Simulated scan of single mutants.
Amino acid sequence: MTTRTRLGVLLVAVLLLGAVAVDSVLHAADRAARRDRQQAGGPQVTSGRVALTSKGGSKQRPRLVFRNTAWGPHRDELASVAAADPSGPRTASGVRCLRFFAAAGTGSCLRAVNGPAGDGYQAVVLDAALRERRHYPLAGVPTRTRVSPSGRMVAWTVFVSGESYAGTHFSTRTSILDTRSGRLDDTLEKYRVVNNGRTYRSPDVNFWGVTFSDDGHFHASLATRGHTYLVHGDVAARTVTMLRRNVECPSLSPDGANLAFKKRVPGLPAEAPWRLYVLDLRSMRERPLAEQRSVDDQAVWLDDRTLAYALPGDFEADLWVVPADGSGTPRRLMTAALAPAVVG
């Protein structure tokens, strides 16, 4: 090969390498542009301190702590935002949870774990600074969790089989933990079920959606023989009493007067069968709320008048709110967020 030929080959190689480099740069720029467009309009999220109570016991304005679902390095982390400015900047904690709730400085975090023995899930009890106090293995996919008003009792539900409440072929396991004594009732299926004053037995009983009234009592959903029921539970007696049909994912108001729930409404699609209702526990009368979309969530009371719940959004889920008295119209509270708790 002559010198001129070698120079020609070298020149072609240089030109090809340059074209590849330019193409790589253009592709990288295009990917960044697509990412920026995807995140355009998303919330501002930065790292910082997130706590479940005010520092030093001092008074502070309420904040919302929730799972941040915005794309980026803080996705799935617990984040905090001022309750008065829910669309404002978010502070991300570094603690990742799939489901979350908190009360009185105790947090319940249901998380995914990866390890040499395989992947799985854990229920983690957090202190007010989001430090782990203890953790427990979960038998399935996390779906619901709640903490009693005092912060002492924690409950969680997982899907043991199936991953949707919309159908009839699913199995759940619901556990209740006393964080003070360490006693864990690993499944409510060990409790005695009472219906019309008599013990009820059926092999298909499922529980989910605990909401605490105090450290010794709770409401939950029970499913059996194709129907769902509201039940009232007594932790000390280890009993649940069936109260009312067609009540799922109950949520007790802070004043204990009302119970929000999702109700299956005839005529709606099988994959989206629910509407939000509120049950007045004094009169036992129920009222539909203004939200007309199907809500597959355990609603959270932001106060005695307002309910928050998750619906699908561009970043997995958005939080919406609606008045609890049946008036008004739903409005979006936050984008890219779910599993909120009011703290502070």
Rank of each mutant, 00 (worst) to 15 (best):
R144I: 10
K190L: 15
E163R: 07
P149D: 09
T145V: 12
T143W: 02
Y165G: 07
G182N: 08
E163G: 12
R144V: 12
D186G: 10
R146A: 14
Y165R: 05
R183D: 15
S175T: 10
T145K: 00
M153L: 12
D186C: 06
T179L: 12
G167N: 09
F159N: 01
E163N: 14
S148G: 06
G140V: 02
D185E: 14
S164H: 06
T179Q: 13
A155W: 01
R183L: 11
R144W: 05
S161W: 03
L177D: 06
V160S: 12
V193I: 14
P149E: 12
S175L: 02
G140H: 00
V147K: 01
L138V: 02
A139Q: 13
L188C: 06
Y136V: 11
H169W: 10
L188K: 01
R173P: 04
G162C: 04
L184V: 15
G151N: 12
L177P: 08
V158F: 03
G182L: 09
T168L: 08
K190A: 15
F159E: 02
P137D: 14
A139F: 00
F170V: 12
R152D: 04
S181I: 04
S150G: 06
H169D: 15
T187V: 03
S171D: 14
A166S: 13
T168G: 11
G140R: 02
T143V: 08
V160W: 03
G182C: 06
L138Q: 04
S175I: 11
V193W: 01
K190I: 14
G151A: 09
V154G: 00
F159K: 03
G167E: 11
W156G: 06
Y165A: 08
W156A: 03
R144Y: 15
T145I: 07
P142I: 13
Y136F: 14
S181D: 10
